[in-house]
Computed example of a mutant assay.
Amino acid sequence: MSERLDYQKQAPALFKKLLDYSMAAHATTIEEPIQDLIAIRASQLNGCGFCVDMHVKQATIHGERPLRLHHLAVWRESTLFSPRERAALAWTEVLTQLPVHGVPDELYERVRGQLSEQEILDLTHAVMGINAWNRINIAFRSEPGSRDKAWGLDKADLN
Rank of each mutant, 00 (worst) to 15 (best):
K16V: 01
H62A: 15
T79G: 14
A11N: 10
L123N: 01
P12T: 04
P12F: 01
L37C: 07
R112D: 07
A11D: 09
L69I: 15
C51A: 12
S43D: 11
A88D: 03
S116A: 06
C48E: 05
P99V: 08
L121A: 14
A27T: 14
N159F: 10
P66S: 10
L123K: 02
R147I: 08
S82Q: 06
K57H: 09
A150R: 11
Y7R: 06
R135V: 06
G113E: 09
K16G: 05
D154R: 11
I40D: 05
P104A: 13
R4P: 00
N159K: 14
S2C: 00
S43C: 12
M1K: 11
D20G: 11
V52E: 10
V103P: 03
L115F: 02
D148A: 12
L123Q: 02
I34K: 02
S82D: 07
S146F: 01
E31D: 15
Y7V: 10
M54S: 13
R110I: 00
E77C: 00
L98N: 04
H26L: 14
P99R: 13
E143H: 06
H70V: 07
L80F: 09
R147H: 14
P12E: 02
I38L: 13
T60P: 04
I136K: 02
L45P: 03
L153M: 09
T29V: 01
I136Y: 02
L115Q: 02
L153A: 02
F140P: 07
A11T: 12
R4L: 13
Q8A: 13
L14H: 10
R41L: 09
V127R: 02
Q35P: 00
H62Q: 12
S142P: 00
L18F: 15
H62I: 05
E32L: 12
K149F: 05
I138D: 03
E106P: 01
R65P: 00
N46L: 09
H26C: 07
T79I: 00
Q58T: 12
K9M: 00
H55S: 08
W91N: 12
A13W: 00
H62P: 04
S78I: 05
F81E: 04
I38W: 01
P99E: 11
A156I: 03
T28H: 10
V103L: 07
V56P: 06
N134I: 09
Y21C: 09
L67I: 13
G49K: 10
L18Q: 14
V111P: 06
L72D: 05
D148L: 08
E64S: 08
L115N: 03
V111F: 04
Q118G: 05
M1E: 05
Q35N: 10
R112N: 11
